[in-house]
Design a protein around this nucleic acid. Structure first.
Length: 342
DNA sequence: TAAATTTGACCGCT
DNA sequence: AGCGGTCAAATTTA
């Protein structure tokens, strides 16, 4: 089960605010998240020791585990744990790891009291730097400036809302102006469109193939998820292409290392695929978003089957989460202060 | 031209 | 009455 789901089931979503459950549950969640963060730090030490001198593989492992730790910190902040519990930011952070350092309204502040209707209670919520890529296709149907918040809230519903009467919706609201910015994503209702999100075991290799096939900047299905916002795609095209190349390179490195070590897969895999990275959206989900509705991409699984030497898991997938510094395409009609939506 | 986004207006809830 | 969520016409994009 994904971390965000666990968080939700642990009381994070229940009871109106969507953040707090009972005091006992709340404390238990904070305790577990704190423990997870500590264990991640230990794992990072071990991984760096094991990968010492292996260049990019070492850097990649370092980055991933920093991100896992950051995800724990995000969750802890969501749960309202004292800021003192958060560790100081690592001295050499990669961009996505800087998120917690910028002052911003807490997710709790962003969540206005919700109406007491069944549909208005989020099933899950998460904080991510790439709010678009969660394995489903969404269509934006509204945007609203929420009082007392700095950023507008965007409303999405499943693209199969009409075709398959899918009632799933999500709301995305920026909650920090970092680089990349961070977004609070809330999910409502289950998908009934039979386009379930990808299994975490889906193929890294297939993802790489998709990346190669996706062509140039902003090409392919990226536009599906990021189409909105007028010229934003064009403005980011060069940067995205650069990021894509860097991350394909990283992925290739990881693939190579894992192919070499596939007899003894590192447990870091379990941490990301089954674990706590609230920010993580795996690349196969992204690949699915690129090309077609989620249900129509068996090609990727087939590709995975063609590369039996690979131990497929979430590690390489989560790397690709940082492929896109997905800023939302907020309109400019809200008279908002400086922000990425302008 | 179809598909997706934008955005003002409307509606229901508190 | 105010606020948040949704609708739907207009607009934009590929």
């Amino acid at each position: 089960m994904q971390a965000q789901s666990r968080l939700a089931m642990s009381g994070g979503v229940g009871g109106g605010s969507g953040i707090s459950g009972s005091d006992d549950e709340h404390e238990a969640v904070i305790r577990e998240l704190t423990r997870g963060r500590q264990l991640t730090a230990r794992l990072r030490d071990e991984a760096l020791r094991a990968l010492r001198g292996q260049g990019q593989a070492e850097a990649t492992a370092d980055f991933i585990l920093q991100e896992v730790a950051r995800a724990f910190t995000v969750c802890l902040n969501i749960m309202g744990s004292p800021p003192a519990r958060a560790p100081p930011p690592p001295p050499q952070e990669m961009p996505a790891a800087r998120l917690m350092t910028s002052p911003s309204p807490t997710p709790t502040e962003l969540l206005a009291p919700r109406r007491n209707r069944e549909d208005s209670i989020p099933r899950e919520h998460t904080v991510t730097t790439s709010p678009h890529y969660d394995g489903y296709q969404w269509r934006k149907y509204g945007q609203k400036r929420i009082t007392k918040t700095q950023y507008p809230r965007c409303y999405y519903r499943c693209s199969f809302h009409r075709d398959r009467n899918c009632r799933a919706t999500k709301q995305v609201q920026q909650c920090s102006a970092g680089d990349p910015p961070q977004y609070l994503v809330m999910y409502f209702n289950d998908h009934t469109c039979d386009t379930a999100a990808w299994e975490p075991e889906a193929s890294v290799a297939a993802a790489a193939m998709h990346l190669d096939m996706s062509g140039g900047a902003g090409g392919g299905g990226l536009a599906v998820a990021r189409r909105g916002g007028g010229g934003m795609l064009d403005e980011r095209g060069v940067q995205e292409e650069h990021e894509r190349q860097v991350l394909v390179s990283s992925l290739t490195c990881v693939l190579g290392a894992r192919q070499f070590h596939h007899q003894s897969p590192p447990d870091a895999a379990g941490i990301t695929s089954g674990g706590p990275s609230a920010a993580a959206v795996n690349v196969t989900q992204r690949a699915r978003t690129r090309d077609a509705p989620a249900a129509s991409a068996p090609v990727v699984d087939d590709a995975a089957a063609e590369m039996p030497g690979l131990d497929v898991d979430g590690v390489g997938l989560d790397i690709m989460d940082y492929d896109v510094t997905g800023e939302l395409c907020f309109g400019d009609s809200y008279g908002l202060p400086d922000g990425p939506y302008q």
